[in-house]
Design a protein around this nucleic acid. Structure first.
Lengths: 177, 177
DNA sequence: CTTCAATTTCTGAATGTTCTGAAGCGACTG
DNA sequence: CAGTCGCTTCAGAACATTCAGAAATTGAAG
């Protein structure tokens, strides 16, 4: 399988991008390749195309399946596993955000709850710290609640909302407008 | 300077958190410490408290200043530099998001524009790839436009918006509600 | 101009991560 | 039941990041 220069550029950039957000480069590249591919690819092909070890592909595919954005599929007459990426971009990012929330934000929320509870009774943690932790918790609670709302909106609603711009805020009668 | 167990827990967790989002552990810990501190701290104190090398503190502070969430300040009668974190959580996250947009999303947008333009004339990139890239670009453009809107809302507006829940969508007459 | 404290820069060492090739496992085939 | 194919696991090598301590720089005070 031969990649066009454009495909290469995209895959490389996506890999680079991944690392900046704490995702393994190869994992991200692999995802980019599958995302562009019209049909599900076998692991062997992926390894050749990306020029990485077969074993590395295996591990990365597990990772991507763990995130829920790549699925294993079979095609008639081929006993090899094939893999395809989720193709709906909006859905894909929703899945990733949900997963990161579960893995990272939720634990942070409980850490903060715990810290705040401890601080109240330990007699060693100053008021200022308690206030800061409280504000941080408030921030996370509000934003996750917010995300919880919006993630359910159909994509068309989001698009309209964006197009409304500041009128949305005024229509809802919120803020200082 | 002695940290309470609660403060330690928070700082450690924040450092851990940072690494998952592509931010150096020490940088994140340092930020956590400054965030909790009622007054600006000199580098020396930070190094002692966090038990890291003085030089490491210096580099990390530069990094945090680069992100725009830590500032150098002076206090009367002390010639040492002191550092304080931005304290408004909402403002702080806005600054970080703005910065990440500038560093990561904007380059991705131009990469996508470029790829799409190239793909149209190179005759080597299949239609399917072009469609996928187009959808991805659409996604990034919509979400950045959206963020551009909301980042300007006062925090109170966001809070109200969240509390309205799905009523907001219905009130605006968007989506399939 | 010298001294001294504070800070920054630099370099090699330590640590952490990512990757490969080899080995192993299981399923299918002749 | 031996042979092949595909997949996964694993140990160590390669690579990248992070860090500490030494050296250099800055800048203020005398």
């Amino acid at each position: 399988m031969k990649l066009s220069p454009v495909q290469q550029q995209f895959i490389l950039h996506w890999g680079e991008m991944g690392t900046r957000w704490g995702i393994n480069r190869t994992v991200a590249q692999l995802h980019a390749l599958l995302f562009l591919s019209p049909e599900p690819l076998p692991a062997e092909t992926i390894a050749e195309t990306l020029e990485v070890a077969r074993s590395n592909v295996s591990t990365s595919l597990k990772e991507l399946q763990g995130w829920g954005i790549v699925k294993l599929v079979h095609v008639m007459g081929d006993k090899r596993d094939r893999f395809e990426s989720m193709k709906d971009v909006w859905e894909m990012f929703r899945v990733v955000l949900d997963e990161r929330k579960k893995r990272e934000i939720d634990p942070t929320l409980s850490m903060l709850h715990n810290c705040i509870a401890e601080a109240e009774k330990d007699g060693m943690t100053d008021k200022y710290t308690q206030e800061r932790l409280g504000e941080l918790l408030g921030f996370f609670e509000t934003t996750t609640a917010w995300y919880g709302q919006i993630r359910q909106w159909p994509m068309s609603a989001v698009a309209k909302f964006v197009r409304m711009g500041d009128r949305a805020r005024k229509l809802l009668g919120i803020g200082n407008g």
